[in-house]
Design a protein around this nucleic acid. Sequence first.
DNA 1: AGAAAAACCGACTGAATGGTTTGTAAAAGG
DNA 2: CCTTTTACAAACCATTCAGTCGGTTTTTCT
Lengths: 209, 209
Amino acid sequence: MTRKGQASRERILMTAKKLVMQKGFAGTSIDDILENGGFSKGAFFHHFKSKAELAEELVRWHSAQDLAMFRTLAAQVEARRDDPLDQMMLFLKLFEDYISNSEDPSPGCMYAVYTYESMQFAPEVRDFVSDTLRDWTAIYVRKFHEILDTYTPVRPVTARQLAEMIVSIIEGALVLQRAYGNVEIAARQSEQFRSYLELLFRPEPAPVE
Amino acid sequence: MTRKGQASRERILMTAKKLVMQKGFAGTSIDDILENGGFSKGAFFHHFKSKAELAEELVRWHSAQDLAMFRTLAAQVEARRDDPLDQMMLFLKLFEDYISNSEDPSPGCMYAVYTYESMQFAPEVRDFVSDTLRDWTAIYVRKFHEILDTYTPVRPVTARQLAEMIVSIIEGALVLQRAYGNVEIAARQSEQFRSYLELLFRPEPAPVE
DNA sequence: AGAAAAACCGACTGAATGGTTTGTAAAAGG
DNA sequence: CCTTTTACAAACCATTCAGTCGGTTTTTCT
C-alpha cells in the first residue's frame, strides 16, 4: 500500500467515523460517505471490499486510536504519582479535562453505537467490540486491585464492581450528553465517582452532632 | 378508531419495538416489521402515514408505558416508607428486582437508541426524547431535594448531580449489559449507587486505626 | 524511460426500501 | 338492512442502496 493510498484510506475512515457517529451505521450509506468526503465509488471499493468490511476496519481503527490515548494518559499518571489511588484520581481528572475540551459536535461512544446496532455486524465484529469494552474494564480492574491491596474500603466492594461502575457512568453520561447537547455531564459524573472513591477509601471522621 | 383497529395498531407497535431494540431504527425496514408480525403493507400504512410517523408514535407509546411503570414503583415506595432516603433506597431495590427478572432478549434503553440515531428523526421527536430523559431526571432531582432537606451529606453534592448520576449509571449499565450479554450489570451498579448514598447520607464513624 | 502495479473514476445493475394505489371485507351507524 | 366508514390486502412504483466493471490516471520499481 502506497503512502497516498494509506492517506486516502484514512480519509475515508475519518469521514465514515464522523457520519456513523452522527447518524448510526445503518443510517449512513456509502454514497453519504463518498459525497461528504469527495471520494468516488471506485476509491471506496478499492480500499474496502464491502460495507461490512468498512464496519470492521472502522472499529478496529478507532479502538487503536482510543487505546493509544488511554495509554498516554495512563503513562502520564504513573510517571507523576506512586500511590495507586492517587493515580486513579489523577487519571480521572485528566480524563475530565480531555472530555470537556474535545469539541466534538456529535459526542458519544462508538462502541455504544456498535452495541445498539449489533445485529448489523458480523459476530466477529460484535465480539471485537465486547472484547474491547472488556479490555477497557480490565485495565480499571487491575488498578482497583492495586488500590484494594493498599487501602481497606469502608464498605465491602470488589475491583470489578468499581471498574464496571466508572465505565457505566461514562457510557451513560455520554448518552445524556448527546441527548441534552450538554458537553459537561461526563466530566461532572466522573467527579462524582471520584467523590465515591474518596468516601470509600479515605473516609473522614464522622461529623460531630 | 375501532377496538380491532386499536389492537392491530398496538401489535404493529409491539413488533416494531422488538425489532428496533434489536436492530436499531434505520436497520429495521417496514417490510421487516410486516414479515415479522404477519401484517400487510396496507395495514401498516393505514395506521401510520410514514416510517417517520411510526418513529414518533413508537417513542411516545413506549414512554407512556415506561412512565406508568415508573409511577407504579414510586407509588408502592411512597406507601411503604415515609423517609425520602428510605424511599429512594427501596425504589432502587425494587428497580433492581424488576430489571434482573425482565427476560428481555435484547436489553437496552429505547431513548438511547433514539439518541444515538438522532439524525434519523424529526426535531420534535428528538426534543421529545430529551424532554422525556429530562423528566425522568427531574423526578429524581425532586426526591434528592427532599433528601437534602432532611440529611446533610458528608461531602457537598447537589440533587441534580445525584439524579444525573443514577440515570447515567443505568444508561451505561444497559450498554454494557447488551455488549456482554450479561443481564445483571444494571442491578449491580444500582447497588453501588445505593452504597454511595449510604456513605454520603448515613456515614458510619471512621474505623479506629 | 518503460513496464507493472496501485489508485481512482463513474456509469451501470439488481435488489431492497419507503410509499402509493386500487380493490375488498368487515364493522358501525341509522 | 343498507349505507358509510374503517380495516386490511397486495400489486405496483420511484428511489436509494450496496456492489460491479471496464477503463484511465498516477505511482513505483527497475
